[in-house]
């Protein structure tokens, strides 16, 4: 029992940096996981990945001008993300090109700009920092930002829930009863951007999408209701955060990848062992009902 305490609880009690990391990761789970659930249900999982890359030039511009400061990097990332989201969304809605293609085009342009800017100045250490983040070095500014984003996300999801579900389930129906279809799509893309920006301090631009998608993808295997799926995704995200931080602490691993890998374990367990996973769905049934 004491060993368990030493192993699981003590790191968070003894070290302030672990407490901050835990607080940041838990808030990110609450905020990013439900967004990820809708991203996945809209078949836009890879859009999240594209958006994460798209944020890079903005963050890099902030970094070039002001060094490793959270406010300019966040604002830069937000601007880049919103420009890419709006541009890709506008091309998809105004032309015959679908959103996957326009999104790919915009994010590739954005990513190459970002790499160009980072390589103009700065060492590879800086690049690593922007790309992979440091959850163990979250300062008060970063924690405040994550908290604000979490509050904004939960508030927005609460207000637009019904429209978001309708837009995913039957977009043509929503268009026939309301004008909210297009706005709610862009509001949702905005939530994706702010959550990725909030996550990149902790997990880096490339991995912040991991906490968004992996718990949601795992939760899909366990539930047939969207509400339950979102709650389950949050729970899995929190669990992954705790496990990842402990793993990183005890094995001296980088914290971002440790958290995302923990979520990856949750995903594989779900793929294999869940009611709709590989094993149970393939199991030959001995009996079936009459109706």
């Amino acid at each position: 029992m004491l060993a368990l305490f030493d192993y699981v609880i003590a790191p968070f009690v003894e070290f302030a940096f672990m407490q901050r990391a835990l607080a940041g990761a838990l808030m990110l789970s609450v905020s990013a996981c439900p967004v990820g659930a809708f991203l996945m249900l809209r078949r836009m999982s890879l859009t999240g990945d594209a958006m994460a890359h798209a944020i890079l030039p903005g963050a890099a511009a902030g970094f070039l001008l002001y060094g490793l400061q959270i406010v300019p990097m966040t604002i830069g990332g937000l601007i880049a993300g919103i420009v890419v989201a709006l541009g890709a969304g506008a091309v998809a809605r105004l032309t015959i090109q679908k959103e996957d293609a326009s999104m790919a085009a915009f994010y590739l342009i954005s990513l190459s700009l970002g790499v160009l800017m980072v390589s103009l100045r700065g060492s590879s250490v800086d690049l690593m920092h922007v790309l992979f983040g440091t959850v163990l070095a979250l300062n008060n500014d970063a924690l405040t930002l994550i908290g604000l984003v979490a509050a904004l996300t939960l508030g927005t999801l609460g207000i637009f829930w019904r429209a978001l579900v309708a837009e995913c389930l039957d977009p043509l129906f929503l268009r026939s009863v309301s004008r909210l279809g297009s706005p709610v799509h862009f509001i949702f893309l905005g939530l994706v951007v702010v959550n990725l920006v909030a996550g990149f301090q902790a997990l880096g631009t490339l991995l912040s999408v991991g906490l968004m998608i992996l718990p949601a993808a795992a939760a899909r295997f366990w539930s047939q209701r969207v509400e339950i799926m979102c709650l389950l995704a949050i729970a899995l995200g929190m669990l992954s955060s705790v496990c990842g931080l402990l793993l990183s602490y005890h094995a001296s691993l980088p914290s971002g990848p440790a958290i995302i890998l923990s979520a990856g374990v949750a995903y594989f367990v779900s793929v294999i062992a869940s009611p709709r996973g590989i094993l149970l769905a393939r199991r030959p049934r001995a009996a079936h009902r009459t109706a």
Binding site: L41, V165, C168, L169, D170, P171, L172, F173, R220, S223, Q224, R225, V226, M229
Partner: peptide
């Protein structure tokens, strides 16, 4: 209909 039948809904 543009209904997404794979969406988790009852």
């Amino acid at each position: 209909s543009e209904l997404d039948r794979s969406f988790p809904a009852r």
